[in-house]
Design a protein around this nucleic acid. Sequence first.
DNA 1: TGTTGAATTAACCATTCAGTCAAACTATCT
DNA 2: AGATAGTTTGACTGAATGGTTAATTCAACA
Lengths: 228, 228
Amino acid sequence: MLKKEIQTEQKILEAARKVFQRSGIGGARMQEIADEAEINKASLHYYYRSKEKLFQTVFQEDFHQFMIPQFKIMRDPSLSLEERIRTFITSYSETMVENLHLPLFILHEISRNPDRLVYLVKGKMGMIADEDNVSEIQIPTAFARQIREGINRGDYHEVDPEQYIISLISMCVFPFAGRPMVKFFFNKDDEQYREFMQKRQDEIIDYAFRILLKGYQPGKSVASKGKG
Amino acid sequence: MLKKEIQTEQKILEAARKVFQRSGIGGARMQEIADEAEINKASLHYYYRSKEKLFQTVFQEDFHQFMIPQFKIMRDPSLSLEERIRTFITSYSETMVENLHLPLFILHEISRNPDRLVYLVKGKMGMIADEDNVSEIQIPTAFARQIREGINRGDYHEVDPEQYIISLISMCVFPFAGRPMVKFFFNKDDEQYREFMQKRQDEIIDYAFRILLKGYQPGKSVASKGKG
DNA sequence: TGTTGAATTAACCATTCAGTCAAACTATCT
DNA sequence: AGATAGTTTGACTGAATGGTTAATTCAACA
């Protein structure tokens, strides 16, 4: 009984995730989700009182999947800044490759209702940070500050740290949000696209270091594992 | 009479654009568009038989605004490749700053229905190109080929041209698609965001050249106007 | 095997919304 | 003024869809 309940709930969430990511909250139909989960529409409401409630559950999970690993990396004190940049890029790309619809879904729903950000971040992202007095919201800012320190030390080129961080994220995320266009204009099928995005990781890491590091040469490179 | 007709049609298109960009085709309401245009809903249908028809008209215009200037630049034979990169970035950013909702709107609607791309591009983009045998669809590919030539000549670093082009577009477009997050995590209000995106242009140009050009130094730089 | 509470279902309800229609209005020309 | 063609409008329709309900099934247990 209990087992069945959990199993059904899980089926619903998976189905809902698929449908919501494909169509957004507006385009999704409760009937469609029910069909996808192979249950009756009334049962769907039995488990999740309303569409909005169901959506929030799914969206919160997705949002965290989209954000938390990256946030963890940005402030991981066991990694040098260069290693963090490298890991940030691979981790981000990996998440997206495994979940192609995620980026656009997140972007679109956040844009439709930016206020969600406040409780989404404050809500469950408290699981990271809080060891010292850096709240999760300030992680990007803190990361930017560390880049600035590197610049001041003379290790890095003169970049605007905030612009630099956003550029990293852009290069990781955008090609997934614009997948149909990438495929269309560079004439790639699904498999070629996947391969292209897989290769892209190393390419972006290279770009990231060319932009930031003084005297960077792709050959000698920066440590790819272990401390720098 | 004729004058009034045109004027109404224009009002409808502006209203529809605003509502569609805000809510997408699914979220938009014909009544809302009618209200925005200050006409009766029946009149709306008098001018545009259906929602889909109205949407297509608006979307096609928006798509072209989003694409054509950049395509023109990519293949402008009067500019050197470096100048084209520079112009590409400023032109793209300029378009986005003036129309903040455009990128996400395009991305979302293309993603919802990728088949549109075929007739959208073949449809009206024939206005560019066709002088020689480079069709508009092949412009990015052609642009990539020219980068490759530069690499082979030894002028540029070893980059994957397709990845490079997509990175340029990413850095230009993504921060607009992710505007709420940029604002939220770097704590900017509308004005600060705007300023940030304005400054960003030069920053990206710098990044683009650091990635591509051998021996690039932001100081000496590449010609900012005229032939290189 | 009968009782109980949770899970499932078909049928139904209420609302929203794109699209239609016929009547009314307006401008222009004769 | 009357006729004509183009435009506007309120009222309406039908389909889609989120959500409810009451009856039924099912699983567990005494």
